[in-house]
């Protein structure tokens, strides 16, 4: 098997995650889909690391994880306060940008 299949898998997971972001209304699920996309990227980085034979790709994946952790903390806090004020976790309810 060619390790390039890992990249195809990563692309597939990324696309599924992106479509999920667009389709789902529940902010938490949307957030999960974002995490899925980040993980797909990490998989690609790891595969590239193997391809190039150095560890830089893994370092980037590592940073991605850290940033994702920070993002989850803030994002979930936002969702919680949103739910607190609007009693709903639907992203469509926050359509205040409309005229």
């Amino acid at each position: 098997m060619n390790p390039v299949n890992y990249l195809y898998l990563a692309a597939l997971l990324f696309t599924i995650g992106a479509t999920g972001v667009l389709i789902r209304r529940n902010a938490i699920v949307v957030f999960m889909c974002v995490e899925l996309m980040l993980n797909a990227c990490n998989l690609a980085f790891v595969a590239f690391s193997r391809m190039h034979g150095n560890l830089d790709g893994q370092i980037i994946a590592f940073f991605t994880m850290v940033v994702a952790a920070a993002e989850v903390v803030v994002g979930l806090a936002i969702i919680v306060s949103l739910f607190r004020s609007r009693h709903s976790a639907s992203v469509d309810d926050a359509s205040l940008m409309k005229l």
């Binding site: 992106a18 972001v21 667009l22 209304r25 992203v91 926050a94 359509s95 409309k98």
Partner: peptide, 17 residues
Amino acid sequence: LRKLQNGYARSYAVSMF
């Protein structure tokens, strides 16, 4: 064009994507 600006974040996300 205004109808594109419907205020739904997901619509904007589709455009971005």
